[in-house]
Amino acid sequence: MRRNLKRIVYGAFFALVLLLPLLSRNEYVLFVMNKALLNIIVVSGLVFLTGFAGQISLGQVGFVAIGAYTSALVTTRLGMPIPIGIVAAIALSAIVGLLVAIPSFKLKAFFLSLVTIAFGQIIYLLIVNLTAVTGGSQGLFNIPPMKLGGTPFTNTLYYYLFLVLIALVGVLMYRLKYSYIGRQMFAVNDDDVAAEACAINSKKTKVFAFALSAGLAGLSGALTAHMVGFLTPDPFTFFDSANFVAMAVVGGLRQLSGGIVGGLVLTWLPELLRLNISGFENYYLLVNSVIVMLVIVFLPSGLGASLFKGLSRLWREKQGAVTLRNSRSKEGE
């Protein structure tokens, strides 16, 4: 009975996700949804970096920007096909991620967050000022869209492509979390001195987490560039980085669902507010920030965690342990 209920709820959710483009013919809804999916990719990386490995990044948008501009330049200036652009974007972002990880060897929490803020700002200022390469504040135009048999992708096609990618990212994150690599992340997060004493190379662990989250951010950036078709420095400010962290915290840092819940909720919330609070352009940002603050203050473990706690209460399941998949069944024994 309970088990059926669980099946029904999840089944309905997945059906809704899969059929959304058929249910809504509204291009705007699909476009916002696509943006949400792209954000989910970035935020999943942040959940891995901050929630699992305990490293804060307030400059994540810097990696998104590197990915976006790399793929855009590779496809426009060099005339390479889009998949090569995307691979280059992921690679370059991940490499820069390796470099940004270096300060994390010595620095913790706030000090690290300041380094990452500076990193994000430096990337932003470089984009604005390196006019010859990035087009400066004018931006880059005519970035080729993805094509299927010669015709450009519609929003619906992008939607399904992103869904597939998120599923792949989800599987990757899930497997990493429930492996010794995930265990290393959690150990370094909890106590890096003790982790080192257990033969865990905390530097390597941090580098891996930074590179992975940067690579995911780069992927998201590259996809954005091709979906939207142009790039300006506007969406790459410090506040956008802050927003990604907010999504991760609101969604819930310690579970994989955090990225999905946070990305969906905080992409849609401002859009819904903007549509419903008409006339006063700026109010929606105000209300948005208040809501985020309230969630953070009152639900510090995140909406995702609360949601799943509620759901598992519904089908009376115990919450499992962290990095062992089979622990739940064993716990019942």
């Binding site: 265990r183 959690f186 909890d190 106590d191 865990i200 062992l324």
Partner: peptide
């Protein structure tokens, strides 16, 4: 100094990495 977010067996598994 134990790993607070890992359970008992996971704490030991960390050393098995």
């Amino acid at each position: 100094q134990l790993f607070g977010h890992l359970n008992v067996v996971e704490n030991v598994l960390v050393s098995r990495c």
